[in-house]
Design a protein around this nucleic acid. Structure first.
Length: 285
DNA sequence: TAATAGTTCCGGGACGTATA
DNA sequence: TATACGTCCCGGAACTATTA
């Protein structure tokens, strides 16, 4: 049950068009030097970084990570973090926190004393970290480990995927950078339905422009990830096989994953067949 | 066992400074 | 200059650990 203080997430187009530029505006852009950031922006980024390395935690626990020994300073830091997350009220005016923008979500409760909310990055928070915080591959690995249950088909299989495709796994950076790859001008090798599948992916989720559940968003991101692996710039290496068989390297030891992807592939095929039939019937001759 | 101290979480506000 | 932010105050509730 999302409360009024939490934001509603949209699909990937929404991320590209609104959330990502908005987050850049408020909390910093990729490649921006740390010295150019306001203190507030640095605070937000350092909190996001802590979140990327941990499971869901309370504001108190986040503060404790930075200040383990000094109670007075710890209380102060806890307050800073809580205000960054949930916003604050000053002279009757309310200003939003990062929970409101959608980079962070509540996930679970701590019952140590009373009830306290736990927080973690949203999927877009994850993408923002990869996009802006200049993560090394090791940091992405760590993030994938902690967020494996949020993005099960990618982060949940991270080590397996890495053993199969190596560094191409970090192609997730392209998505974080806002590259949806649904542009027909992107050139791929013949016989690879890269553009067709990417386009269909966006068609499939277009109804979710304004609102999407986290599970559905994880699906969209996961499809994007595997479709992206089909991409090979022309002239680099000749493909040994055609079409989505290129993904068999990954799928051969994971039948469920293969099935999941094939269902998507077939519904794409069906979609284009139906469209083609409509065109065919309306041909003036 | 009962009092005391410490921890975790929440909230409000004053006030000076930084940012637009 | 209006607004947002940082820093420093404060107190209450509810629980746990320590001490006497």
């Amino acid at each position: 049950m999302p409360s009024e203080s939490e934001s509603v997430l949209g699909n990937l187009q929404n991320y590209k068009m609104y959330l990502r530029p908005n987050a850049h505006l408020h909390y910093g852009k990729p490649g921006e030097k740390k010295s150019n950031l306001t203190k507030h922006q640095q605070n937000v980024q350092s909190l996001l970084k802590i979140m990327s390395k941990n499971k869901p935690l309370t504001t108190w626990e986040f503060a404790k990570i930075s200040i383990p020994n000094d109670m007075a300073k710890l209380r102060e830091r806890e307050k800073i973090y809580r205000r960054l997350l949930v916003g604050r009220k000053d002279k009757g005016k309310r200003s939003d926190g990062i929970l409101n923008l959608g980079l962070v979500v509540k996930d679970g409760k701590s019952l140590k004393t009373g009830v306290a909310d736990k927080y973690r990055l949203s999927l877009y928070g994850v993408l923002y970290c990869i996009d802006v915080l200049d993560f090394s591959n090791n940091e992405i690995d760590k993030l994938a480990e902690k967020y494996s249950n949020v993005l099960p088909k990618v982060f949940g299989k991270w080590d397996y995927l890495k053993s199969k495709i190596g560094n191409r796994i970090y192609g997730i950076k392209l998505l974080a950078n806002g590259l949806l790859a649904d542009n027909p001008q992107i050139q791929v090798q013949q016989g690879i339905p890269f553009y067709e599948l990417m386009s269909y992916l966006h068609i499939k989720f277009q109804r979710n422009f304004e609102s999407i559940s986290e599970e559905q968003l994880a699906e969209q991101i996961s499809y994007w990830f595997y479709i992206n692996l089909l991409y090979n710039p022309i002239g680099k290496t000749e493909p040994k096989t055609d079409g989505i068989k290129n993904l068999d390297v990954i799928f051969e030891e994971d039948a469920l994953l293969k099935k999941w992807f094939l269902i998507f592939f077939r519904s794409a095929t069906k979609y284009y067949q139906q469209r083609y039939t409509i065109l065919k019937k309306s041909d003036a001759k």
